[in-house]
Amino acid sequence: MKRKTFLSGLLEYGGLVLVLVLLVSVFSLATDHFLQWQRLQIIANQMPVPIMVAVGMTFVLIIGGIDLSVGSLVALSSAMFGLVITNWGGNVWMAVPLCILVGTLCGLINGTISVAFRIPAFIVTLGMLELARGATKVATDSRSIYLGKTVEGLDAPLPWLGLSPAILLALATVIIGQLVLTRTVFGRYCIAIGTNEETVRMSGVSTKPYRIAVFAGSGFLCALAGWAYVAKHQTVDPNAATGIELAAIAACVIGGTSLMGGRGNVVCTFIGVVIISVLQSGLAQMGVPDAGKQMITGLVIIVAALIDVIRIRLTGGKTQ
């Protein structure tokens, strides 16, 4: 029994880890300084925002939903720092709660409207994407606001580790997310709802609160990402995190999350984010222009989806 779960675990993560190792080896051979602790630190310190957003997205996709508003929610919640610090003369610790509150609230609105009125999440979150981005521009007066070193806290690398608290926070969301998904009633219900919501309902479970909570959770994680964003750039940017929703979905897909719902894994999503980040910075270091980076990243996403389908067929899942 133990062995079997180990084997299936290997099958689950093995392919992704293999791809990652391959990428790192290729880049180490092709460039001079890729596999250096410093270089890897830089890559790692870039990842908190996409990791946290993708963790939330994994849950949203598992219940069969989608959240297109994540980029705007990151921007809007990070804009709270600008409001509190420059406009109201507050400090970072007054800004953080407001940032979290705004992000979570927007997620809650996404969930409530799509669940209560049975509007596809695609449409509601598309609306929120525009709404929150517009609100961000109002809050920032459509200008970048430099906040200075006071907000750097989360991003300042810990001297004994070289990594920032932000990446540790992001890793914590991965671990907690995975535990919630696999070990809690909430996680089990999410997978069940994504598989067949009617079955869950007919098993005596009210599914609506769970679906709303997942969107609220996604909003909460966007707010954390917004905080990490401000810490990293020390700036509030009305155009922050534009297009990150697609990067997050791509990471989930590379990690084997089904867009149809019912299947996903937070750790795999995390590896997906790492693969994209390594790919991006490795290609950049090789001197590949942006256009080429974009094309290669797109290719990787499609190949990942193909591999996933083949893997499911091989392991005897239902092929359809």
Binding site: R188, I191, A192, T195, N196, E198, T199, V200, R201, M202, G262, R263, G317, K318
Partner: peptide, 13 residues
């Protein structure tokens, strides 16, 4: 299949 089972999930779930 419509409202009794989670088809792609395990017997245990």
């Amino acid at each position: 299949k419509h409202d009794g089972l989670l088809l792609s999930q395990s017997v245990q779930s």
